[in-house]
Amino acid sequence: MTPEAFRRAFTHGLQALAGLPLGAARPRYDRLCQGFAPPLPEGMAVQDGSVAGVAVRRVRPAGALPGEVVYVHGGGWTLGSVASHQGIAASLAERLGREVVSVDYRLAPEASYVEALADCRAVIEALTPRAAVGDSAGGRLVMDAAGTGEWRGPLGLIYPPVGHPTPDTLGPDAPLLSRKDVLALWAMVEDDLPEGDPALPPGARLEVLAVEHDPLTAPLEDAVAAWRAAGAEVGYRRAPGLWHGALHAHAALPAMGEAWGDFCTALAHRLS
């Protein structure tokens, strides 16, 4: 698949959701994301259950090493599930060689950001995982869970919104996620976010993955520089020529696959 073919296909899928009630949009979003996922690796087990009263999906590779990794999906806090992001969770499990516990946190507007964060923090604190990884909106949840709880393990952050996005801090518009999209989603949750200094690193050890064309990338790169200056160990890589959401198609997009592989290898080193 070429990057342009991915962009067209994902754009078409997102446009088809416009105007639908959330009850109809959510399963369609799940199917859209699932359509880019490769088949599950041989021997990988998938099991739904719960941790601390929160719904989760466990993805376990054959011969898994001890210790779990928590994964928190994206979707703008209103969409996404353990089903939509199973391809990412499965790839993470395979590359790390560990069981990944994907959190099916409560979504807005039925639930507040406070409740979504409570779900993620409850799973992390119950499992004390080897690492916690989140992409997009899930990356922000992972950052805030680490910043408001007692767990202090390594974090993996995939194009998360950092700081307090404004028209002045965001980067240029891009396909698949516009500045307007970011600001509208942020307005929905900003009053419920925990207080804190955005210049302070969310953890002492972080691996970060971004894409070139994404309004969230400029503030994320500023944050990485600030976190390093504050003493955190931060690995950073950016997939060239790609857009927000491209991780779903990492198996078909060479630039995304290479950046994702580097991210997972670096995170695996931190776990070992």
Score class of each variant (00 low, 15 high):
Leu157Gln: 13
Glu233Cys: 07
Leu176Glu: 01
Gly196Leu: 08
Arg228Pro: 07
Gly231Phe: 04
Trp227Asp: 03
Ala218Glu: 15
Gly231Thr: 03
Glu207Val: 11
Ala249Glu: 14
His164Pro: 00
Gly235Met: 07
Ala230Trp: 04
Thr169Asn: 08
Ala232Leu: 01
His213Ser: 02
Pro194Asn: 11
Glu207Gln: 13
Leu242Val: 09
Ala184Val: 13
Met188Val: 01
Leu193Pro: 03
Leu157Met: 15
Met188Arg: 14
Arg237Ala: 13
Gly171Thr: 14
Glu207Asp: 14
Leu247Glu: 15
Arg205Thr: 08
Arg228Ala: 09
His213Trp: 15
Pro219Gln: 08
Thr169Asp: 08
Gly245Phe: 03
Val189Ser: 12
Ala225Tyr: 05
Pro201Gly: 03
His248Asn: 13
Ala223Ser: 15
Met188Gln: 12
Leu216Val: 03
Trp243Glu: 13
Pro194Phe: 10
Ala199Ser: 14
Pro165Cys: 05
Gly241Ala: 01
Gly257Val: 06
Val234Asp: 12
Leu242Trp: 11
Thr169Lys: 10
Ala249Asp: 13
Pro194Ser: 10
His244Phe: 10
Pro254Trp: 09
Met188Ile: 00
Glu207Phe: 01
Trp227Val: 00
Thr166Trp: 11
Arg237Asp: 15
Ala255Asp: 12
Leu183Trp: 01
Leu253Asp: 09
Leu209Gln: 07
Pro240Ile: 01
Ala199Cys: 09
Ala226Asn: 04
His244Gly: 06
